[in-house]
Each structure stands twice: as structure tokens, then as C-alpha cells.
Amino acid sequence: MIDTAEMLKAFAPHRGDSIVIPGRGGRHWTQISDQPNRDLPVGDPAMGGHASFGLGVALSLPDERVILFDSEGDVLMNMGALPTIAEKAPKNFYHFMLDNECYATTGGQPVPNAKNIAYDVIAKGSGYPATYAFDNLEDFATHLEEILGQPGPVFVALKVNPEVENTPIGARVRWQTRSRTQVIDDLKDELGIEGP
């Protein structure tokens, strides 16, 4: 199992100018990122949508490398997004998926068939040209340059330690420092994108 914060720290030197959608890793990434205006920490607008959101960002900005940290719960909820990503095949899209085998934000209940799903195989079968799976940080770090050095879409499944929350949502400390719409507006300003 990989510690999510340590994984993101290992990734950070490879980030370059990539646009990063930190997804479920947002609480850690906001502490690590040195280019917050190129990040899209939109939190969880609606579960299951991150992969499609990342696809849209990648297709709309073909000259930017787009990195998504998705989760297995999100992928399970909208697994049909994988064939769409594979068909559109954005060469600038890198799809990392954090697999903690549970719904951590609701108390840690297991996802269906939690310990027996090969997400990299599902991605490969959906048409991703390159897929990986890692369950330890060392192997992941060793392969990062290779992963990011090839054209996308690339899918990377990562077994991570669950960070279970079990306090009522209203009582949790917010890690977001900007609103979702502010995050988007900041990225648009950074990239010089006009329009609503």
C-alpha cells in the first residue's frame, strides 16, 4: 500500500507545467503544489465525474499535459468513461487512480469486490494503449519518468492506504482554500483563456 501524500511528493518533481486535477488527493496536493494556478482542485462536484472532466480538459487544451488523480470509487461509478477516453485518445492525458478499496469519506465501507478488481486490466480492455498498476511507492517512483514520457492516454492504478473520515460532513475541516469557480477562473487567467 502507498501513502497518498508520499506518492504526490514523489510525483511533484515530475509535474513540470502540467495541469493537475488532484481529485481525492486534493487535500494533500494543495500543500505540495508549487503552481496552484495550474491546479484544478474542484473537490467532488458529483461522484464519478472526474475521468470525464479530465478528458474534457485534456481535449480542450491539447498543448498542455493534463494529470488526473481519480479514485476507484469514482471509476466504478462511471466505468463507461474509460472507453470514451480510449476512443478520443488524448495524447496529453495521464489518468492516475487511487485505489484504497473503500469509500473513505463515508466511513471506510468497502467498494464492491474491493480486493479483487484489476483496474489496469479494465482500462487496457477499454482501449487505453498503456496501463500500469503499483502497490508500493518505490516501483511507482521508478516508473514515473517512463509513464509521463510516453503519449497518453495512460492509466495508472495505485493501491493506497485508506484515509477514513467518519465525522459528519458539516463538522469536517475544509482543505479547500478557493471556491470551485475561483479555481477555474484562476486557471483560465493563468492560461489566458477568455469567455464564460
Binding site: 480538459v57 480542450s60 487544451l61
Partner: peptide, 16 residues
């Protein structure tokens, strides 16, 4: 449902 998140991503990048 995927259509709305896809459209959101496209809009972020300035597409219509």
C-alpha cells in the same frame, strides 16, 4: 451523466 462533467472540462479549456 458523463456528458455534464465532460462538458465542464471542455468549458474550462475555453471550448464550447
Amino acid at each position: 451523466g458523463q456528458a455534464f462533467s465532460t462538458a465542464a472540462g471542455l468549458t474550462v479549456g475555453g471550448k464550447k
